[in-house]
């Protein structure tokens, strides 16, 4: 409930934010790094929604991707390796009015932070999670990550990695209480913007796997896909991604996919030879944890004080009468 006058006066006095307003420090990512494209898309989403700067928080763990909060002119929390999600959950729980974004990498999310990822999906708190998947630990200079293709030569796997790569999409589509899953490459800017925008608008835990280029340590990883638009299958739907005429001319490999169909989503992710991109699954009806656990009363100073007194009294030794 907000008084109508407040809304009118706020709108009348509101400043229009430009892309520069959302920019923070100058990015120190490598030239040609896909993170630059993600940063530009996110800033465009913020501008599109005219999100108030003081109502945005970017939370990250450790890795190249996790430098993200520094480059946004908003609040941010550059946390511990793999622990971006618990911090973001804490922020959302206490300040549900904030727009919470999480930037995490394939190592940060799928390895050390995997347990948090499983439960954050289950908690379904309203936040936008971008997993920058460049298939490598880049910040620490070339170690194989869970999503590195088999045979990846790196400092930790000099003879080539021996395990099949971990598929974050197949994994997340198996988690309970799933609400939003998407996949998008960083090299199709229009699509990247559209998917992040839709994820932000979705009320719930929106997980986006972003296929990210790393020109230093995985230089040729996505090269074939970038050269051959047919290797990318764009999933379109009125409740999902919509192609502009320009994009439709370049990317002809399209498939109509209803994002509410979980079985079909699992089939596409599990069997498609081409890279499926777009909104893979969306269920707006899953309740958010912060709504379920919203306190039924306002924490007034009196209420907090009486609660503390009550707890402390349990340990008080009362003098005998």
């Amino acid at each position: 409930m907000t008084a109508r006058a407040t809304e009118i006066l706020r709108r009348a006095g509101a400043e229009q934010h430009s892309l520069e307003d959302y920019a923070g420090c100058v990015p120190r990512w490598c030239t040609g790094c896909g993170d630059n494209a993600i940063l530009a898309a996110v800033q465009k989403v913020c501008r599109e929604e005219q999100l108030p700067l003081e109502k945005i928080v970017f939370v990250s763990g450790i890795g190249c991707s996790s430098r993200f909060p520094h480059y946004m002119g908003t609040y941010g929390f550059h946390g511990l390796h793999g622990r971006a999600l618990p911090v973001a959950e804490g922020i959302k729980m206490r300040r549900p009015d904030l727009h919470v974004f999480v930037n995490t990498g394939d190592g940060d999310c799928c390895s050390i932070g995997a347990a948090h990822w499983v439960h954050a999906t289950r908690y379904n708190m309203n936040m936008t999670v971008m997993m920058h998947d460049n298939n490598i630990y880049g910040l620490t200079k070339n170690q194989a990550s869970p999503t590195s293709p088999m045979g990846t030569r790196s400092n930790t796997t000099p003879r080539g990695s021996v395990l099949e790569p971990f598929d974050p999409l197949q994994a997340t589509l198996g988690f309970s209480n799933l609400s939003f899953v998407a996949q998008v490459p960083d090299w199709i800017p229009e699509l990247l913007f559209q998917v992040i925008h839709e994820a932000h608008k979705h009320r719930g835990f929106s997980f986006i796997r972003i296929l990210q280029r790393c020109p230093e340590f995985q230089a040729n990883r996505w090269e074939p896909c970038m050269q051959d638009p047919a290797s990318v299958r764009i999933l379109t739907h009125e409740n999902g991604v919509k192609l502009s005429p320009t994009l439709a001319r370049a990317y002809k490999n399209n498939q109509e996919h209803d994002p509410s169909d979980l079985v079909e989503a699992r089939r596409i992710v599990g069997t498609s030879e081409e890279i499926p991109v777009g909104i893979i699954y969306r269920n707006p009806d899953v309740p958010c944890y912060e709504d379920m656990r919203k306190p039924d009363r306002l924490y007034t100073p009196d209420h907090v004080k009486s609660g503390l007194e009550e707890e402390l009294d349990k340990f008080t030794i009362w003098p005998r009468d």
């Binding site: 990015p27 030239t31 896909g34 630059n36 940063l39 530009a40 370049a250």
Partner: peptide, 25 residues
Amino acid sequence: TPRCTTCDECTNRNDRMFAYDENKQ
């Protein structure tokens, strides 16, 4: 321009010849 991924390659090469528009492309 609409397909630019903002990777800084060209702008780092010559920022007087190449520049970003209002969409950072």
